Amino acid sequence: MEVKLHDIGEGMTEAHICHYFVKKGDEVKADQPLVEVQTDKMTAEIPAPSSGVVKEIIVREGETIPVGTTVLIIEPIRSMIAKPKQSIVVHSQRVLASPYTRKIAREKGIAIEEIKGTGPSGRIMDNDVYEFMSQQNTKEYEPQKIQETTPQITNKEIHQEVIPFRGRRKQIAHKMSQSLKTIPHCTHFEEIDMTELILLKNSLKGRNLSISITGFLVKALSLALKEYPIFNARLDENNEQIVLEKEHHVGLATDTEEGLIVPIIRNVEKKNVKEIAEEMKVLSKKAINNELTVKDVSGGTFTVSNVGPLHGSIGATPIINHPEVALVSFHKTKKRPVVNDQDEIVVRSIMNISMSFDHRIADGATAVAFTNRFAQLIENPSLMIVELI
């Protein structure tokens, strides 16, 4: 039986073979993890479709292959009873751990089966690996870490460094290139007065209700999208029509060790600010720990990039997450002197935003109207409250 790389994510065309959990001759059970692969969106495991023996491993670790490629071959077992007991090498119970946790164990040179998990149902957590490592003497595994995790290769003769271009980085490059080649990007910039919203946030915090600023921003975008649905759409060129999506599935561009990934907050239009903020925390943690599922990263209709916390950006020309229509970047908030309606100079907290949109589908005037409405809601939080009643 051929075990092939199947489509495990929306728009996936290829994947990088990270690590095999089995070797030739191993006996496996149905649903047992065989190999860990990485796409532009996630790290995932390919399970055994049925019980059998690994007859041949065709693709080597480190290779990038297209969907449909045969990864390994499993030979079915006709009679489990007839086989000698000592020949069975199947794990009696699958080790529960995320791909990211398994990766940490491999980098430290630790057999994950030796670790006792403290998570639900005995699941092995990141801290369990570090605790086991400290007990076994960290220095013992440091050479292994250096050998396996350092991706740079130095050519001593010509004094160059070569960084492997594969895995998620290669997938991201492919998707960004596709977006720029397909979509005529147009970007405009705006300033948003965050002062009143910050005051509201601090007031709620004083009442033991801590909600992130981004939660308010995402909700305000959803309210604006109701009035300007053209930015929550996709272009169906084959049928020559623009499809306006009724549901707001907002993607949050998240920077991780493996590269950029975009988990999705689903149905933002139906959720309050508190629910949005709490879901953001959960998704952010899953993204950092490489625990996102296909559902977590699929079906987005609008994307947000919050680079403000990095404290180094005042503007950008973000690339649209194809096939979406638009993307908004939030940049750092900074106190500035501003002239108010009474011609007085006052200090206000100002945030820059950048909005890229598909010029085939929308025009500049509509994009400006959209960000003006967004700014109105943020600068006057009471209007947002009225919209939610």
Rank of each mutant, 00 (worst) to 15 (best):
I81G: 04
A375T: 08
E114A: 11
D343T: 06
V3P: 03
L244V: 13
E14Y: 00
S121W: 00
M125E: 11
K295R: 12
R106M: 04
R169N: 05
V59R: 02
D26F: 05
A48H: 01
V37A: 03
E258W: 14
K335N: 14
S179W: 06
S210P: 02
Q342W: 00
K226Q: 15
K139W: 03
L310S: 10
Q144I: 14
N137M: 00
A97D: 07
I163S: 11
G117K: 01
Q32L: 12
A253T: 10
E344M: 04
I17W: 02
E245N: 15
K145W: 14
Y228E: 01
L235M: 10
V297P: 00
I163F: 12
H19G: 00
L327K: 03
K41I: 02
H16L: 03
Q241A: 07
T118A: 01
E61Q: 13
K334L: 15
S79N: 08
F374T: 12
H188C: 15
L34I: 07
P120R: 00
I17P: 06
V250N: 03
V162S: 09
T150D: 15
E257V: 08
L204N: 06
P229Q: 09
I73C: 01
K246L: 08
N238D: 06
I385V: 15
I172P: 02
N306W: 04
E247L: 09
V3L: 05
I73K: 12
E113Y: 12
N340V: 01
E157F: 15
F374D: 06
V95Q: 02
L383I: 11
N272Q: 11
A365H: 08
I163N: 12
R60C: 01
N289D: 14
V338Q: 02
A97L: 01
D7Y: 00
E191H: 11
K286E: 09
V262T: 15
